[in-house]
Structures are given as structure tokens and as C-alpha cells.
């Protein structure tokens, strides 16, 4: 007996919703970034699960996940650079206090 595909999809859907909740409600910009990373992880899990349950002779599913991880790494590098730069300007990383483009 094996695990059905829908269980993997359900875990991934739950992970996506948790990440969405974190990105929408938390005040710290770093936690917003962590929420976005969790959502990207859920998408990657979906891709790998569908690859495993396909006929899987080609590597397309795995390579899409690979490029997804690459893009997530680039995104978090630029995002954290922006957070540090904004902290230098506003002395805060709370997204509510950062409402002006210039100080």
C-alpha cells in the first residue's frame, strides 16, 4: 500500500495556507519573507509529488523544482538586502511603520 497523491497535495495546500497567513498578518518584514519562502516550498512539494506520480521518464518535474529553488534563493537575497537597507533608514523592520518612500 502506498500513499495516495492527494495526501501530498493536502500537505502542500496546508503549508501554502500557513505561509499565506504569515505573509499577510505578521508585522516583521523578515517573517513576511519566511512566509513567502514557505509558500514557494509548498509549490515545489507539489511539483515533485506530481513528477513522482507521472510516468517519470523525463526529468522535467525535478528540473522545474530546481529552477524554482534557484529563483527563491535570488528572491530572498534581494529581499533581505532591502530589509537591511530599510532598517538603516527607519531603524525598524515593521511593515506598518515603513509607509513612506523617503525619509
Amino acid at each position: 500500500m502506498t500513499i495516495p497523491l492527494s495526501h501530498y497535495l493536502a500537505v502542500s495546500a496546508a503549508l501554502f495556507s500557513i505561509g499565506l497567513f504569515g505573509a499577510l498578518t505578521r508585522r516583521s518584514a523578515i517573517i513576511v519573507l519566511i512566509g513567502i519562502e514557505i509558500m514557494m516550498n509548498a509549490a515545489n512539494l507539489n511539483l515533485i509529488a506530481f513528477w513522482r506520480y507521472s510516468d517519470g521518464t523525463r526529468a522535467t518535474g525535478q528540473l522545474f523544482t530546481f529552477f524554482g529553488i534557484t529563483i527563491a534563493a535570488a528572491e530572498v537575497a534581494v529581499g533581505l538586502a532591502i530589509v537591511i537597507s530599510v532598517y538603516r533608514l527607519f531603524q525598524s523592520t515593521n511593515v506598518n511603520e515603513i509607509s513612506d518612500m523617503k525619509k
Binding site: R27, N94, V95
Partner: peptide, 11 residues
């Protein structure tokens, strides 16, 4: 960012 414990928790 020395922001270990966020003062105000949620938006």
C-alpha cells in the same frame, strides 16, 4: 536588525 522580539506582534 536588532529586532529580536517584535514589539507589536501583528499588523
Amino acid at each position: 536588525t536588532k529586532n529580536l522580539v517584535s514589539r507589536q506582534y501583528y499588523v
